[in-house]
């Protein structure tokens, strides 16, 4: 068995009395591509955002590579040492947002170079070379100096993927990466993600694109009401789920698309 890269243990989270996550466990081994599916409000985005601690769970343990954070009670305030651990944890992840979240005052290339250069402190020449390579890889070799505001949504999302890759992460997290895109731009982004999966990268993907999720993943998780309702190889979860609710969900999705 390959080593575990990302592990979540008994993650719980409520917003204003509403329990969104009710004890979720998850482990991604090196090279795993895990698709996380579920209806809106099932907690799948919250779960993904808990991994880099963008949402701080009320309780549970998050570990990424050699960084580990454990939270025992809600409203937890991180100590100085913990904040450092959180940064180390985040530094090993590449996160791709639904709404891209590029830094608008930097060009595409500057966006990709920012973290390697100013957070990881790698040499400028190396950062630049690698950033250019990453942008070329996502098909934007001609857009180095373009401003985010002048790029299409699909292009912005591909810059965001290049930015995540440039951090040399152990795992990539995608939070509904195509939901904010016009339909005709979805394909170009999915192609890039698919290519990354084929390279053997570790990825966790929250998505509504069922066909894509089935094809690209080696493991799928169906969340319902903040719990893992169904989990297993994609053939099982998408084609022959044990749970009635999961069956209805994937059946409906298939009917739609």
């Amino acid at each position: 068995m390959k080593p575990i890269t990302v592990r979540l243990t008994d993650i719980r989270k409520s917003f204003g009395g509403q329990e969104v996550l009710r004890g979720v466990d998850l482990a991604a081994r090196d090279g795993d591509v895990i698709a996380i599916i579920g209806a809106s409000g099932s907690g799948k985005s919250t779960l993904l955002r808990c991994i880099p601690l963008l949402e701080i769970p009320d309780q549970g343990e998050v570990s990424v590579g050699d960084a580990q954070i454990r939270i025992r009670d809600s409203g937890h305030r991180f100590s100085r040492a913990e904040r450092q651990t959180v940064r180390r944890l985040r530094g090993q992840l590449g996160f791709v947002f639904q709404s891209f979240n590029l830094w608008p005052h930097m060009t595409a290339l500057q966006n990709v170079m920012e973290v390697p250069l100013h957070v990881q402190g790698r040499p400028r020449a190396e950062c630049r070379e690698e950033a250019e390579a990453m942008l070329a890889k996502v098909g934007l070799a001609d857009k180095f100096d373009a401003w985010p505001a002048h790029l299409s949504g699909g292009q912005q999302q591909r810059v965001a993927i290049a930015r995540a890759l440039a951090m040399r992460p152990r795992a990539l997290l995608f939070d509904e990466p195509t939901s904010a895109l016009d339909p005709e731009l979805v394909g170009e982004v999915l192609r890039v993600i698919r290519a990354l999966a084929e390279e053997g990268r570790t990825m966790l993907i929250v998505t509504h694109e069922m066909t894509f999720a089935r094809e690209v993943s080696n493991q799928a998780i169906y969340l319902q009401d903040g719990r893992v309702e169904e989990q297993g190889p994609p053939e099982q979860v998408f084609l022959d789920p044990q749970s009635e609710r999961c069956r209805r969900f994937v059946g409906m999705s298939r009917g739609e698309g």
Binding site: P52, L54, V86, R87, R88, L89, R90, G91, L93, F95, F97, N101, L102, W103, E114, V115, H118, V119, A160, R163, M167
Partner: peptide, 9 residues
């Protein structure tokens, strides 16, 4: 958020 998630101080 994009800055936080990249591990910036």
């Amino acid at each position: 958020e994009a800055a936080r998630v990249s591990g910036m101080t």
